[in-house]
Design a protein around this nucleic acid. Structure first.
Lengths: 204, 204
DNA sequence: CAATGATTTGACCAACTGGTCAAACTCACG
DNA sequence: CGTGAGTTTGACCAGTTGGTCAAATCATTG
């Protein structure tokens, strides 16, 4: 595929279809468990045709991942130092929960990678994510020092928000089996709101 | 391998070595990402030799899984209806956290399966786990109705305990990168204790 | 409507993988 | 120490998989 010139209509359509199909396949089988052929079929293309648009399976995966990571961190970036601390945190929790509901495949794709030791992600985590986490952990610490929210280990607080919200996407198979008819996302917002409100509302 | 008679010394040793190696390999690459050869080498055997002890890759996996599940649910089974509610729950949280620290590979093996839709686990989850969860959710509900702990959706309460504790094992790669030198398991017990104490201690 | 570049595909390849098998080797025991 | 059961392995096989390539088809535009 001509790499340098502007993408044609067909290129845009097919590359988008491939990435969409790849998200589906990768997120439900992991990298090793996914085959180029499965992705191609899901995108409505033949295998050689898919490989005309991306040089390799790994290239598809990488493009998917780097595209994902930005979106994934947006809610945390939006944590506003100028806002009311408790409201900011509660809003962050709800945003993350919504992402688990609206983009479960993205969450599972990410989870798949991390669980397996993040072999294809170490760089990004160590760079972008770490910087952002340090910044926001400091912000949380400042809020605690000012007595505006209860004290708690800032990083563990962030971890807890991630794990609680992503759990509904990542462990969806288990959650739905155990909840039966009831939609997990019905009670979850209230549950998490209560949890963090009780956890963080200053005693005084 | 002669199936019916009592296992020889060599059989016991090699089967144990294989399961140990398989836990290592499966938990860090998933089922599809693991090869029989990798497991065999990790166990110090040749591939045909490994297949002398287990009829197939799937058989190794199944034996590993069914052995794991029992241990995995023990902490929840131990939730005692006769105990002091808050203490029982806090103890459960700490037991689960300890399992994440002491058996992270088992946790990741399980996570790997669930994230990918539990293709090899649906039966067990729908059966054993569901029954146990219904029972313990009812117990939590009773404690809430009696005003002995704060109200909260019982199943979401259980989910939150699982996700918060297993996160330290399943997302170990991310957690360790972000925490640097600091051992995640140093502050985690205190953090979770505080969280659930504030969440569940009755207001009155 | 050429003709040129973009797109698609069938045929193919080499590496890998799960699994088989007969032959060789080792061990426990009489 | 011999013998039969238990154990190990090299060679092999068939199916899958990531990826290549030349030839064929299609779309765009001068």
């Amino acid at each position: 595929m001509p790499a340098d010139r502007a993408p044609t209509r067909i290129q845009r359509k097919n590359r988008a279809a491939i990435l969409e199909a790849a998200l589906d396949v990768f997120s439900s089988h992991g990298f090793r468990g996914s085959t180029v052929d499965k992705i191609a079929k899901a995108a409505g293309l033949s295998k050689p045709n898919l490989l005309y648009y991306f040089p390799s399976k790994e290239a598809i995966f990488n493009e998917l991942m780097s595209g994902l990571l930005d979106t994934w961190l947006d809610p945390l970036r939006a944590l506003d130092p100028e806002g009311e601390p408790l409201d900011e945190i509660l809003a962050y929790v709800q945003r993350k929960l919504q992402m688990s509901r609206d983009f479960p495949r993205e969450s599972r794709l990410y989870a798949n990678e991390i669980v397996q030791g993040a072999p294809r992600l170490h760089g990004v985590i160590a760079a972008d994510l770490k910087v952002l986490v340090e910044e926001k952990a400091q912000l949380l610490q400042d809020w605690m020092d000012a007595g505006r929210i209860n004290r708690a280990h800032p990083k563990h607080l962030l971890f807890s928000i991630w794990s609680l919200t992503q759990h509904y996407a990542d462990f969806d198979a288990q959650v739905r089996t155990l909840m039966g008819e009831e939609d997990p996302f019905h009670a979850a917002p209230q549950y998490l709101e209560t949890l963090y409100r009780r956890m963080l509302t200053p005693k005084s």
